[in-house]
């Protein structure tokens, strides 16, 4: 029996998981929608991953979680490592492209840029305050235009004269888009214009002041959109690489980090059948009114967090 490692990346829109072997080779991978319920999404994910591996041959000994629900899922899966998505993406990408210099990542709610030199992250930035130009924006505009977001890229590539769309802010972009549509711009031109708006928004905000050096790897859900990929290439003037498994990089990265951590305890795929409940409790001990998240496993409190000070601390009785 050989050791295997599970990495889970739970984003706002999609949940990704991989199982790797001791040589960082992916032996199982899965991708599904989070649908606002990360616990349920992870349960389904674990079942699907289990069915892809030979459990007599591979034994998962360590779990890593990343993405915006990493803490909650880390508790539920008894993860060895809970890691932020910036580090996870960097490690995952470096394992496939050791020479990478720049990573663009545009996900459902956030976007980031990671700069790498000699295999080490030297700078990064994430969008602040506002989700303009992310996947959520593209899906809502696709809906408005009556096309599937999956077809966006294909349609964008047919445009000969992309429409100029204000890129600074989602609200401005949206009203500009409506205006351009009403004065008769072609749908494919508007869609291509939107892809360009996403790119200029990204480069002007997240990428501001950052030196973009190739090789550039483009990841996250939006990287599947060929229109955005092309707009990036047109703007920065060199090739942008989109890996077919690019959406799995965060999960891959955190699986590698879990492996490196050396913290091992056998993972039980049966957690998919266990009930986990989370409750938000408002602490009333001062006017901060912190929301404390309590996680229960079959009625037993297993973890709690969210308090700003010690007054709101909930102690967990750890069984010896």
């Amino acid at each position: 029996m050989s050791k295997a490692y599970l990495g889970i990346d739970i984003g706002s829109i999609s949940t990704k998981g991989v199982i790797i072997d001791g040589k960082n080779e992916i032996i199982a991978k899965e991708y599904l929608w989070t649908e606002g319920n990360p616990v349920y999404a992870v349960k389904r994910l674990i079942k699907l991953l289990e069915s892809q591996i030979d459990t007599d041959k591979h034994k998962v000994v360590s779990v890593g979680t990343t993405g915006s629900a990493r803490k909650l899922i880390g508790v539920i899966t008894d993860a060895s490592v809970v890691k932020n998505e910036i580090t996870a993406h960097a490690i995952g990408t470096l394992s496939i492209y050791p020479n990478v210099r720049t990573i663009f990542e545009i996900g459902g709610q956030d976007s980031k840029i990671i700069l790498i030199e000699n295999g080490v992250v030297v700078d990064y930035a994430m969008n602040s305050l506002c989700a303009a130009g992310t996947g959520a924006f593209l899906s809502s505009q696709a809906h408005r235009l009556g096309v599937e977001v999956e077809d966006f890229g294909k349609i964008a590539l047919t445009s000969k004269k992309p429409t100029q769309i204000a890129a600074r802010c989602t609200v401005f972009a949206e009203s500009d888009l409506v205006h351009k549509a009403q004065i008769g711009h072609k749908k494919e031109d508007i869609i291509a214009g939107l892809c360009q708006a996403v790119v200029s928004n990204y480069l002007n905000n997240v990428g501001k002041g950052k030196k973009i050096i190739s090789p550039v790897i483009f990841q996250g859900g939006v990287s599947k959109n060929q229109g955005v990929k092309k707009a990036f290439e047109d703007t920065i003037g060199h090739e942008v690489i989109v890996d077919p498994d690019g959406h799995l990089t965060g999960a891959l990265g955190v699986a590698i980090i879990a492996k490196k951590s050396g913290i091992e305890r056998d993972f039980d795929f049966n957690i998919a059948d266990i009930d986990f409940i989370t409750k938000g409790v408002e602490c009333s001990k001062c006017s901060n009114n912190c929301e404390i998240i309590c996680v229960y496993k079959e009625d037993e409190l297993i973890d709690a967090w969210g308090n700003k000070c010690d007054k709101g601390a909930i102690r967990i009785h750890v069984k010896a």
């Binding site: 890691k83 932020n84 998505e85 910036i86 580090t87 080490v120 992250v121 030297v122 990064y124 994430m126």
Partner: peptide, 13 residues
């Protein structure tokens, strides 16, 4: 998230 990533970055550097 940003602070953690910053910490990871400076320690790796």
């Amino acid at each position: 998230t940003r602070l953690e990533a910053f910490y990871d970055m400076i320690i790796m550097r």
